[in-house]
Design a binder for these strands. Structure first.
Lengths: 192, 192
DNA sequence: TTGACAAGTCAACACTGTTTACTTATACCT
DNA sequence: AGGTATAAGTAAACAGTGTTGACTTGTCAA
């Protein structure tokens, strides 16, 4: 027995779906921790114990990996359901506790990668289908899409500013006050 | 006379400052039109009629080039002076006509490049010294920095959303109405 | 047992930013 | 005027990137 029970590359069974999933898991993990641009295809492949070429075989290109990671993620879980009147406060709290706190790992990854020209179409689709679309449908009324877009802009902007070290300025007051302030702004964005 | 009057590489006089400026001009032009990541050092060097190594010699690294391009640019020319009462409207008009219209070429370039990890420190410095700092000083009052940061977040967010194809949603109403709406939101951001 | 086909690998391609060692033009000093 | 130090500029290489096409190899059905 030359090959012991360690699951080396050679020793593994050939299971397309399992391999695909393994690559995807490693990619999400690495993108989340370090951002899209920082993580090379070869590192993902190595983490998954697989040859680089498989990434392109299964996902077309590196960008396809992130696209799939993003697609799996629930952007604002449960935010766009429940009482309409308290929506602004719920969003504000989400911003203060998630976006400004640590942020969903995936959110951080997205912030690292936003603006990457390779990913423009991926983000474009996601912005519409996961944020602006559902939010506009939820709030309804005249120019719902415009109002939803303004809220989305605020959320994305806060995330970006945070990434650029501007979070300190926002955190200089206590979280409750910031939440109140943000609630007011979001209400204004959503006004008909 | 083997070398005619064409200013080929060999035929040029050696002028450090002129060469530096030529590289910088080509870089600004290319970054502006295509974004930081799209333009390689070698292309900039070729456009300037110069060897690649000079970029690193004169600017330390590619990122140094963008840093200098950004530093030269007046972010919001003349926006933070004049009547305090009309500031929100002025900012709103700036957003509608500049950011949403075509955008300063350089602004577009920055949007292409925001999030690039290589440039984080460059943007970080610029955000504070060219936007949040002056704005906070201009508006004054309690928590000026927090309020200024919120406006900055909105501006950056709108730019980002625009880049992601979300500008259509904003433009579906007429510019005057959008300006009014934005003015209200910015007023809310700036409230003490 | 033997094919066929899919799963997986290997080696190369054309690129990237950056560095080191080198050449060459210019300006100064005797 | 002639020689030389010094700075301006270049060439070639390095280690890395994403991506591709030709190759090998494991697995399952006939």
């Amino acid at each position: 027995m030359d090959r012991p029970d360690t699951d080396t590359c050679q020793g593994r069974v050939r299971d397309r779906e399992a391999t695909r999933q393994r690559i995807l898991d490693c990619a999400r993990d690495l993108f989340t921790r370090e951002g899209y641009a920082q993580v090379s295809s070869r590192r993902i492949a190595a983490a998954a114990g697989v040859n680089v070429a498989l990434i392109n075989r299964y996902f077309g290109a590196k960008r396809g990996l992130l696209a799939e990671v993003i697609a799996e993620d629930a952007a604002f879980p449960g935010l766009f359901e429940g009482d309409r009147a308290t929506l602004p406060r719920r969003i504000a709290e989400h911003v203060v506790h998630r976006t400004l706190g640590e942020g969903t790992p995936l959110q951080r990854a997205l912030m690292h990668s936003i603006g990457d020209p390779d990913l423009q179409s991926v983000f474009e689709e996601r912005l519409q289908s996961a944020i602006i679309g559902p939010l506009a449908a939820y709030i309804g009324g005249a120019e719902a899409r415009t109002r939803a877009t303004l809220v989305a802009a605020l959320l994305i902007g806060v995330g970006n500013v945070r990434r650029m070290g501007g979070a300190d300025s926002l955190m200089e007051q206590d979280p409750a006050a910031l939440t109140r302030r943000l609630t007011g702004i979001i209400e204004r964005c959503l006004e008909e």
